[in-house]
Write a protein that binds this DNA or RNA. Structure first.
Lengths: 215, 215
DNA sequence: GTTTGTGAAGTATTTCACAGCC
DNA sequence: GGCTGTGAAATACTTCACAAAC
C-alpha cells in the first residue's frame, strides 16, 4: 500500500480528512444502488453519480485496501459492508440532543438519523418549561443531569441546537462528559480540544458562500 | 497583486473556492468584534478566533485587495464593509422555500436569515393541505405557481426542504426558473448545471464523517 | 517596534497513465 | 477487452519569511 505522507498515529492510519468526508457520500450512493438491485459498479459509474473522477474514487478506497476486481468493478454489497466498517457505521451510535426549541424539536422528530445508525436517546434543556415534556418519545431532562444521563446511557455523540450565546458553554459541558463528536446547529464557531470533532450545520454560511458567485 | 493560477473568467477573478468558503467566517468574527466595540484587529487576533493561521487570513484577503495598514492591522468597520461587498452581502437577497413540512416550518420561523441579509419571501408545497396556510407571515403557494412567483418577486435563491425522492425534480424546476443558488436540506446529492451552486445542509453526513475518528 | 502583503517554498490533494489482473 | 490499484506528475493550497509601510 502507498505510504506517501501517510503515517501511523496511535495505531490509526492517517487518512486525509477530505477523503474521510467523501466516504459517507460513497456509502449513500452505494445504498441507493443496492436498493435498485445493482450488484456490481465501476469507479466510473460511481463517479457519474457523485460528480467526481473515477481516479479519485479509486485513490480514496486505496487508503483502506483493495475492494474491487480488475475488469469487473466493485461488488456493491461487499463495498457497502467495507465502507460501513471503515466508518464504524456497522453498529448503532447513541446521540444526545441539547436544546429543545423549535429546531431541537424538528431534530427529535427527524426520521433520517435512525436508518443511518444514529439513535437520539436523550434530550436536555435549561428551560424549566421544557423539562419533563415528552418530545418524539423522549423525556426532556434538565441540564444538570447531563453527565449522569450521558454516562448512564453511554452516549458518544452530541447534537447542539441552542442559541448562539450558549453554544460554547454547552459544548464545553459535553466535552467534560467525554463526548468527542458534536454537531453544532448554531451559527458560531466553537473551540474544542483537537481530539473532539465538531461539524457545523449552518444554512447561513451556506448561503453566504454562494452569493459571491451570483450576478 | 499576485496572479499565480488566478485568471479572469467572464470578467470575474478566479478565487479558489476554499477561500470564498472562509470569507463568511471572517465576516462573522468581524461582526462579533464590531459589536464588542473593537476598532482594529490584526491577522493574528483574527486567526485565534477562527483557529487558522495569520498567514492564511492575509493571503485570503490578498485575493481581493489591500485592506490593512502595516504596523496596525485592519479597521474592523472597513474590513467588514469590504467583505460584505465582496460577498455581495451589502444588499438583501430574496429567498424562496420549497417544502413546508416540519423542517420547512422550522426554516420559515428561523430568525437567523434576516440579519444575515436573506429574506424568505415565498414558500411552496405540493401538498394541498398546506397550500393557502399562513406560516411565519407567508402564504404557502402551490408548486405550479413557482415560476410566476419567483419571477414576480425577483427571487434569486432557493431553499429545498422536501423528501429525498422529490429533491432532484424540485431543483430542476428551480433551475428552470433561473435560480442559481440552492440550499438543499435533504440527504441526497443533486445534479445541476455548473453555473448553479448547491450547498447541502446535512446533519447525517456530518455525523457519518465523524464516527471514523471515534474509538 | 509592529504588522501587512506577497513571492517563494513547502505540503496536500488530485489527476494521469499504465502495469497487472480478471 | 475492461477495470482496478498505484507510483509519478500535475495542480492546488498553505505556510514561510521578509521587504515595505506605518
Amino acid at each position: 500500500m502507498a505510504q506517501e505522507h501517510v503515517i501511523h498515529i496511535e495505531g490509526n492510519l492517517a487518512v486525509p480528512e477530505v477523503v474521510v468526508m467523501r466516504l459517507p457520500q460513497y456509502l449513500r450512493v452505494l445504498e441507493a444502488l443496492a436498493e435498485e438491485g445493482t450488484e456490481v459498479v465501476s469507479s466510473e459509474q460511481l463517479g457519474l453519480r457523485i460528480e467526481t473522477t473515477p481516479a479519485q474514487i479509486r485513490k480514496d478506497f486505496s487508503y483502506f485496501g483493495k475492494f474491487g476486481k480488475q475488469g469487473r468493478g466493485y461488488s456493491v454489497r461487499y463495498l457497502l459492508a467495507e465502507l460501513r466498517h471503515i466508518l464504524k457505521l456497522d453498529g448503532e451510535w447513541k446521540v444526545g440532543l441539547v436544546g429543545v426549541g423549535r429546531l431541537g424539536r424538528a431534530i427529535l422528530s427527524y426520521q433520517g438519523f435512525a436508518p443511518a445508525g444514529f439513535k437520539v436517546v436523550a434530550a436536555f434543556d435549561s428551560d424549566s418549561r421544557q423539562i419533563g415534556q415528552m418530545v418524539g418519545g423522549i423525556m426532556v431532562q434538565p441540564m444538570h443531569r447531563i453527565q449522569e444521563v450521558i454516562q448512564g446511557e453511554g452516549i458518544q455523540i452530541g447534537i447542539v441546537a441552542v442559541p448562539a450565546a450558549d453554544v460554547q458553554r454547552v459544548v464545553d459541558r459535553l466535552v467534560e462528559c467525554n463526548v468527542r463528536a458534536i454537531v453544532n446547529y448554531a451559527p458560531v464557531a466553537v473551540h474544542t480540544p483537537q481530539n473532539v470533532k465538531v461539524r457545523n450545520v449552518d444554512p447561513v454560511l451556506a448561503l453566504q458562500s454562494m452569493t459571491f458567485y451570483l450576478p
